[in-house]
């Protein structure tokens, strides 16, 4: 029996106010469904047909079901047997969390995620060591892979079926844990920003005058969003054993100023007082008195002067499918070139 694979596709990722305050794109539902259809084609090439999917009300499910029923009617071989999880649909992040939990219980070999960094964060924090195959449909997409979905599905199939060994095709990732007082920690896959806005509101970050502290698990000047700020002063690789923390300040007073793309099409001057490497396991306490904490670019937690916020970098926190490593391994494997295991 080929293993099962889970799919969590968020229909409202990449729909926030950054369509207005920046120039963020708005990936259509039909395109998201087509991305998924391509990923499923990649999976089925390795004989995976059993797919569990999170139900949602944004239209991706309906579109993909229609796509599959058309394929079945035309007698396409390798048609996917898609099962929608039996769970209530709330239209909130809770859906992704619940779906990831059920998929873990069902023993899926991998979870394909279509969403932004926020969706990936929810799934990663819930699915334990099940590897995530990431497909970007969000706004900043610092974490999520920008790649043709067919190849992502193909690599996921290689890893899930064991054709490519886990040691090769699955990589461990860092994350940042945020704790307010003694509450259970929340995680961020890329960045934690502490801002003075003391409310969640429309969630996205775009008012730079409120930015105070930034913690990143990795930083790359090729990315956009909060981690771009860090990437522009000191790039940190995804596999490096450290992160970076920065104290931000008004651009006209700070010793270091970068022009950072904090959202698509939105480049802002950001002042930086100082920065340093963040060692794994070392808890750092925020010096901001009251405000909110943004996880991967979205305000999620509010705190006031009575509360203490701490941030900690954690290594080997969750797994992802390494698409490049998996397909390169396959390319060097003689048996695969002879058609062994191939389902198409």
């Amino acid at each position: 029996m080929p293993p099962k694979v889970g799919v969590i596709a968020n229909p409202i990722s990449g729909r926030d106010i950054r369509r207005i305050v920046a120039k963020a794109n708005s990936l259509q539902i039909a395109d998201r469904a087509n991305m998924l259809a391509r990923a499923l084609a990649g999976l089925s090439a390795w004989g995976i047909t059993d797919v569990l999917m999170m139900p949602e009300r944004g239209g991706i499910t309906g579109h993909i079901m229609r796509h599959l029923s058309h394929a079945a009617r035309r007698g396409d071989s390798g048609a996917i047997d898609l099962t929608l999880l039996k769970m209530p649909v709330t239209g909130s992040a809770e859906d992704s969390r619940r779906a990831a939990r059920i998929m873990a219980e069902e023993g899926v070999a991998a979870i394909i995620v279509l969403g932004g960094d926020g969706t990936h964060r929810i799934v990663a924090s819930t699915c334990g060591d099940i590897p995530i195959a990431s497909m970007s449909t969000g706004t900043n997409n610092a974490f999520a892979d920008m790649r043709e979905p067919t190849v992502t599905g193909y690599a996921t199939g290689l890893v899930a079926t064991g054709v490519v060994p886990r040691a090769v095709g699955v990589k461990a990732n860092k994350w940042l844990e945020v704790r307010i007082d003694d509450e259970p920690p929340e995680v961020a896959l890329v960045d934690v920003a502490v801002v003075t806005q003391q409310n969640i509101g429309a969630r996205a970050l775009w008012r730079t005058d409120t930015f105070r502290e930034l913690y990143v698990a990795f930083a790359d000047p090729q990315l956009i969003g909060m981690s771009a700020i860090a990437g522009l002063v000191e790039p940190v690789g995804r596999r490096e054993a450290s992160g970076l923390m920065l104290q931000l300040a008004p651009a006209d007073k700070a010793p270091t100023v970068v022009a950072a793309p904090i959202a698509p099409g939105l480049i802002e001057k950001i002042g930086i007082d100082n920065w340093r490497r963040l060692r794994p396991g070392e808890p750092v306490f925020s010096s901001v008195e009251a405000g909110s904490v943004a996880l991967d670019g979205e305000r999620e937690l509010c705190f006031d002067s009575r509360q203490k916020v701490s941030v900690r970098l954690v290594e080997r926190a969750f797994n992802t499918i390494d698409v490049a490593a998996a397909v390169h391994f396959a390319a060097q494997n003689d048996a695969l070139r002879k058609g062994a295991r191939l389902a198409v």
Binding site: S26, Q28, I29, A30, R57, G59, G62, H63
Partner: peptide, 8 residues
């Protein structure tokens, strides 16, 4: 609806 997104 075929696609139930109004943003689309």
């Amino acid at each position: 609806t075929g696609v139930d997104s109004y943003v689309d």
